[in-house]
Nucleic acid binder design. Sequence first.
RNA 1: GGGCCCGUGGCCAAGCCAGGACAAGGCGGCAGCCUUCUAAGCUGCAAAUCGUGGGUUCAAAUCCCACCGGGCCCGCCA
Length: 486
Amino acid sequence: MIIEHTSVNPTKPLHIGHGRNAVLGDTVARLLRERGYTVEVHNYIDDLGRQMAETLVALSEARGRMRGKFDHHLGRLYAEFHQRLETSPELEERVREVLRGLERGERVAEEARRVAERCVRANLQTTDRLGVSYDLLVWESDLVRSGLLQEVLERFKATPYLVRGEGEKLGTWILRLPGEEEKVLIRSDGTAVYTARDIAYQLWKFGCTRASLRFRFHSRRRDGTRTYTTSQRGRVMKRFGGADVVINVVGAEQKFPQRVVSLALKALGLERQFENSHHLAYEHVRLPEERFSGRRGTWMGFTVDEVVEEAVSRVERLMGERSAGTPLRRVSEGVGVGAVRFSLLSTSPEKEIVFKWEEALDLDRNSGPAVQYSYARACSILRKAGGRIKGTLPPVFKLGEEKELLKQLAQYPEAVRLAAERKQPSLLARYAAELSLRFNKFYEVAPVLEAETEELRVSRLRLVRGTKVVLGNAMRLLGIPLLERM
RNA sequence: GGGCCCGUGGCCAAGCCAGGACAAGGCGGCAGCCUUCUAAGCUGCAAAUCGUGGGUUCAAAUCCCACCGGGCCCGCCA
């Protein structure tokens, strides 16, 4: 299986909405791997688009030194540039000139790649912090130069579905599928629209193209996994691409183009690939009064970097009020990340999230930290119990809380199966929160170490151990850091 | 004009696809619980015409129709 997610233009930092995409895709990848599938995660980098062209012009005009992370720097430049663009027609002409250069693969395309590369490295620092990993970075420039796009377009010209535009659309090539709205794929100036490239990429993902890409090692993620990248100077590697199932994590507003991508496969007679193309759609994260806009810079203050940092410092403040003694930074980092990941996952993707700090950084019940807290409590009990837990006899329980906890533990496999099958991490997030709630109610009324009888003590210890294992597994799948103490 | 998604206590939200017993859970509010395994916890109370109106059914938050409110799509933008 191939899962494509994140795919942010390499001209800006990730805002919290991009964070939703990345965390959603990352968690679905973890879930499907758990279910036994071989999953390859892609992050698509559009280094030839209009945003890139605008950023290059903005960069060439920039005065003064860079502040902070490179992606933030670019994002600010871009927003400033857009204000000037509205009143300066000559800037618009320069942007078009650069865009043409990018299309033709002129020298400016190399500069674009260098700038984008720096931005992607900065973006990866952000996703690393969230525990998100990628197997492959796919660059649009490599896709185009491999001849993939050409090949795919030639293939469509041999079908009755790619037709020459007429009248207002003279000079274009239009994809016209029976019973569907038509879509221009080639502009009258001969350049391909974004959807055309998406179609070519989709075909490559399924291993349905002759043109091949080259790869090389890019960087190592924090969890030790390796990320590769497409590269003109790389090697041909058989391991990438050629999937049976493709899942694209893309915003719900792109339902139409995503539909065109999968229908295009059908038009080429690739029925099975059509059936196995999935658009995992999600609604955006927005502010109470407005949407996030790169052009207007409304994302400022709501980047993933800033949200995570705020989460971590809130946790530190909370820990400062309590008796310390634990390695502060490592714990607060883990709890902050857990809070952000959980809050992005716990709402169903088809629902819009209106960003509010109190909700995004929830540390109370029904949150990432709440789950982490229960896990730490379970670890603490087991630590104090010490040694091996003996006993293979059927457990002796007498309290309702024990039975409720046991029942919840038993439902874990079904929760994972359902979350993976429906590609809905929120189901597992709910499960984990519920399990942590049941565990809390259990340890409140059921002394473990000081249980009345040895039999009961062993039974409860096994229940605590079961909770630790199951909660830990759920947390790993959700990407919520496991902390033995907090 | 055509199409898609959302609408559940003051706020967030599960359940809807596979219709059934008093509609989860959380935040906020109120009242309690720390010489005992971490109070990021636990207990209790108040708070819901499940957007509105029809229909199907023994039974509807859940299925069907219409309407209202919010968001999105229908570009030689991405």
